[in-house]
């Protein structure tokens, strides 16, 4: 059945709309492919090495649950470092404060110039991970 001229024009417009839409989608799909990490050069992120692996030895020396304090470096990586410490030591709660009987020290880039006066070093686990305790708690 032949369509009326105006109806045919509308139909062609719709077809054009569909093709245009497909074109836009395929452009975006191209981006998906080209911006994906290349399988041959995939570099896995370092979350595991920055958290679980670094703190494994320390975790074995801490209580299974409760709250510990935290001191760390200052700078751009301070917050992610703290979050990764909490992630590694869960279910222990890591409070961003040195005012606890047990305190975790996290200094991945450089050792601290000075440990806060109310704390003493219990053990250095290497890679900037330290176990400290409050002098008052003894």
């Amino acid at each position: 059945m032949l369509a009326a001229p105006d109806q045919q024009a509308v139909t062609n417009k719709t077809k054009a709309g569909i093709l245009l839409f497909i074109f836009c989608c395929l452009l975006s799909t191209t981006r998906l492919v080209f911006e994906a990490p290349k399988p041959a050069h995939i570099q896995r992120d370092d979350i595991s090495t920055r958290s679980d692996q670094r703190f494994a030895a320390l975790k074995a020396n801490l209580p299974a649950n409760g709250v510990v304090g935290y001191i760390g470096e200052i700078g751009d990586s301070a917050t992610p470092d703290y979050y990764l410490t909490q992630y590694a030591l869960a279910p222990l709660v890591v409070d961003l404060s040195p005012n606890h009987s047990i305190v975790v020290g996290n200094f991945p880039f450089a050792p601290p110039a000075q440990i806060p006066q109310n704390l003493r070093l219990v053990k250095d686990f290497g890679k900037g991970v330290m176990l400290l305790s409050s002098k008052e708690a003894n």
Binding site: L32, V33, P37, I42, R44
Partner: peptide, 10 residues
């Protein structure tokens, strides 16, 4: 493809 590669990388 994108999803699989991203899961491997992250």
């Amino acid at each position: 493809y994108q999803a699989t590669v991203r899961v491997i990388a992250h």
